[in-house]
Simulated assay, not measured.
Amino acid sequence: MKYCNRVVANLERKLQTLNSQTDNVFEEIELGVFHCKKALKKLRLKVITENFNSPVIESHFFKMIKPKPLGYLIFYLSLAEFELCRPQTIKKTKKYIEEQIQKYQEYFLEHKAFYQYLERNRKDRDSEYFLRSHGVVKFHPDALQYCVDENFSSSHDLIVAKIYAHKLLIQRLTTELNTLNDAKSNPREEPIPNMQWTRAKSDLIELIYALHETGAINNGNTDIKDLATLFQRTLNIDLGPYYRTYIEIRSRKIKKTKFIDLLKEKLQKKMYDADEQVK
């Protein structure tokens, strides 16, 4: 069980890093699906080659462990479907988001009794829901996985995974909807001046990481992905795979922070020259 917990923990670390460092949503989805499938393959191999020590451990696995990578996989596949069908206008996008959130919430109502069982942390029916030998096949599409791969499925672990995925989707879409609503209620009074970054991309990436580490923006309650998006849009530049560039910056033998050092040097010189003029 420790091995399975490590697999899931490693997956979550990778997905968290992926979300903060990937600017292209389809790149995020592609890599997310890859990591989820890889984690599920590891878990499946472990389960079918080694038996569980007790029914309690088995039910815990299908209730608490497997649904996480499976839920993330459903999340990314659903997100891909959402992005492919995304409308072109803000008004239609907002309506589409609201419809999708409603659809995901309806799944909770469809499985209301079981959802309440999970939310209340009950365990009295775990053997019925999460032991492979006790699975009750219902006439519902969510029973398909149990019928196809009963060695690595219980009758209800897919439902748990979908509930987990739908919570992630609702959270993500609600955040975007709030952003769209805020943008409409707080229109800019003046247009943003057209700015262009004219130094090397690595210089800007160095600056972005420095700002992130100092917590200079939003009291540090932001991530690299958001900062990179902000500067790319504001300064009309595509930074490309900026995390890879950051790794290259870290590997410098001399002056890892050469651009920040240059900023300090230039500002100090300006102040010195100004002081000399008033003497």
Rank of each mutant, 00 (worst) to 15 (best):
K42A: 14
Y146I: 06
Y3P: 07
R188N: 12
S78E: 09
E58P: 00
K266E: 02
R233E: 11
I208G: 09
L263N: 05
Y3S: 13
I48D: 07
D157V: 02
I65T: 12
E276Q: 15
G220S: 02
P241Q: 02
Q268A: 10
K258R: 12
Q196R: 15
G220E: 02
L118D: 02
A143Q: 13
A161H: 07
H35M: 08
L204E: 05
H111N: 13
E276C: 10
L235W: 04
N5L: 15
Y129V: 03
F26A: 00
D203F: 04
I29D: 01
Q102W: 08
L235D: 07
N221L: 06
K167M: 03
L207C: 05
K225A: 05
K2P: 06
E12L: 15
I224H: 14
K91E: 04
L204C: 07
E110G: 03
K256C: 03
F61C: 01
L158P: 05
C85Q: 13
F130Y: 12
N121K: 06
P69T: 09
D238H: 05
K112C: 07
A143M: 12
Q105T: 08
Q277N: 12
L204Q: 05
K2Y: 14
E81P: 01
R244E: 10
I57R: 13
E248L: 06
K95V: 02
I29A: 09
E128V: 10
N194Q: 14
A161Y: 01
K162D: 05
L158Q: 15
S54D: 10
T222R: 01
P67T: 02
L263A: 01
Y107Q: 01
Y3A: 15
L43Y: 04
T49D: 03
L84H: 10
I237W: 01
R13E: 14
C85W: 00
E99Y: 01
T234D: 04
P87F: 06
L79A: 00
Y104D: 07
Y104C: 04
W197Y: 08
F52W: 02
N51L: 08
Y164S: 03
V148T: 08
L262F: 05
N178P: 00
E276I: 13
Y104K: 07
S153I: 09
Y242G: 01
G71N: 04
E265F: 06
G215Q: 07
T89P: 07
S20E: 11
N51I: 11
D203G: 00
P69A: 09
C4H: 13
Q277W: 00
T17A: 10
H156L: 04
